[in-house]
Amino acid sequence: MLIPPWSTDIAFVFLGLFVQGMPFLLLGALISGFVGTYAPLRSLLSRIPKNPLFAAVLAGGLGFVVPSCECVAVPVMRRFFQHGLPLSAGLAYLLASPVLNPICLFSTWVAYQGFHPWKMVALRAAGGFILAITAALLLSRLSPGKVLKGEILLPTQRGVFSDPLDPMISPGSPRWLQALGTALIDFRQVSLYYIAGSLAAAAFQILFPPQYLPSPDSWWATPALMSLAVLLSVCSSADAFLATSFIGFSTASQLAFLWTGPVLDLKLLLVYQTILQRRAILLLSIFIILVVALMSQLVLPLT
């Protein structure tokens, strides 16, 4: 059988993304399953401020202390939304944690050694936080039915696989088994989208190699780096090293790359579909692009 060379190249990059993301998706699913079963979620959720701004700031700020990347955050937030987490808080955490988590900020500091690492870390963290809070507040103005997927809004069926054809848990099973069952539902569901997103990202990397970046001085240098962040779908803990290789590009353009990638890339666009309606994802994407473009202009005098 004759296999076109591009298909093996796509398989190569796809497997890299799969191998890299799978353990973190599994970790996120296990956390979501066990937290959903054991944690006193109702009591925890009742302590979240009713004011959407305070709720978003509190949840976004959690990103600083909880070391979770986007692959872990998605299944966890999916489960929290099912338990009634307010939109503003959940979205703020979902969008803030990939940028604000300590691993991502540390890798940014390491990558920019010799080139104002603290300034880069501070600007990246501040911009990521502002982006997450404003995007969360925007979407939380809509009704949950317009933002979240229908299945998220259904009452939770603890420990039962979501589909009637799926395997089941025997009545009277211990709680840990219910938690495991829940985790496996989430893992399988998110994996379906993660595989699709990784395949799309791999196909773009191979079929449309980002070979011809514009001159660093051109007006579209920043949009080009933002587009590259979307197409490459690189993990937020690695993207700073990539950003340093954009020689000659302004720090503002590099920051635009660093703000965009962790919250908007090909793989995430598909993975978000396990939580959000497509229209909400479209609105979120447009908002992220506009806010990042604006922020990169605002930081120009600082860089």
Binding site: V110, G114, S245
Partner: peptide, 15 residues
């Protein structure tokens, strides 16, 4: 090609 002539690179790779 963005970094194919990396001898111009300024970044230090500490990882």
């Amino acid at each position: 090609a963005w970094s194919s002539a990396m001898s111009r690179s300024q970044g230090a790779f500490s990882a």
